[in-house]
Design a binder for these strands. Structure first.
Lengths: 158, 158
DNA sequence: CCTTTGTAATACGATTTCGTAGTAATTTGT
DNA sequence: ACAAATTACTACGAAATCGTATTACAAAGG
């Protein structure tokens, strides 16, 4: 149980920094850039708001991330035809290439997980992980501070 | 399995942002400040280097965090008697109070976990979680880029 | 001793994240 | 049809993180 505390403490500042492989990825690009590219790869083109909500980031942060990626030529932003306010974010050729490269590395990592776990363990693991996420997600003993900024919560579904 | 990808993507930028309770804590203080105070509470006084390594943060980041906490009156930094170079970081009265308050909230969260899980599930969960961490931690198919900065890796033991 | 090497920490600057405020386009209510 | 509210996003400035350089002390070798 103390182990769970530790896990929390250790990953507070640099999440996933215990994963050897992702560290290599992050030499080239920030974790948020990486996330963004992978989301675009998995889910296809997205609006800025959709991206921000997928990432659990404020829209203003998303703007920064997107302009960075655009500057690096990894994504393109086009104005939607239906609604001139929304910007559709797309992977460029180069962005898609990079995203696929990283997808491959992630698959390798998960492959290691699959070979270390029995199929039953793997099932049980994802089941319990998601169950735990649900628990932490649910409202606790309601703590009624009225706060200026409603903190953005990332939702884990499924 | 795709679910594990998702979990990774969603928590890349704001780890634990799916936990409702920690969001409330973070209204008052950053996640790194919180980690630091809890480490001091759990482990007792620490040097700057020890703190940095516990957090998996660079020492320079730790300096920033510590001066922030000192400015807020939550910790004190004293020069060690044995070695004038090392600074011993201690919780102040107020720092200890805050840390205990948060420890309490974390206990509540883990309590919710304990009541949602059967004891067997909880055991299995921590076992699998640590096993997974180990797997991700181990060297993969060695990728031989020589990098200027050896990225800091957080080690999960036990 | 006193130079050399090593270690603990801070200083500084660059990059990233994010809260607040603003702008522009769309929708709603009357 | 048009003012008011809402939505999608960007701008800007403040704070946080972190790499590199620097300072201060300690230990080792001559």
């Amino acid at each position: 149980m103390q182990q769970l505390y530790d896990l929390f403490l250790k990953t507070g500042l640099r999440p996933f920094a215990f994963m050897t492989d992702t560290l290599q990825l992050e030499q080239k690009v920030t974790r948020s850039d990486l996330s963004t590219l992978l989301i675009l790869l998995f889910r296809g083109d997205q609006t800025m708001s959709e991206l921000a909500s997928e990432m659990g980031a404020p829209l203003s942060s998303m703007t920064s991330i997107a302009s960075r990626l655009e500057r690096k030529g990894l994504i393109a932003r086009a104005i939607s035809a239906q609604d001139q306010r929304v910007r559709l974010v797309t992977l460029t050729q180069e962005g898609r290439r990079l995203a696929k490269e990283w997808e491959h590395i992630m698959q390798e990592m998960l492959g290691r997980l699959e070979s270390a776990f029995t199929p039953e363990e793997l099932d049980e693991f994802t089941r319990l992980l998601l169950k735990a996420a649900k628990v932490f997600q649910s409202e606790g003993p309601v703590r009624q501070d009225v706060k200026k900024t409603a903190a953005r919560k990332i939702n884990i579904e499924e």
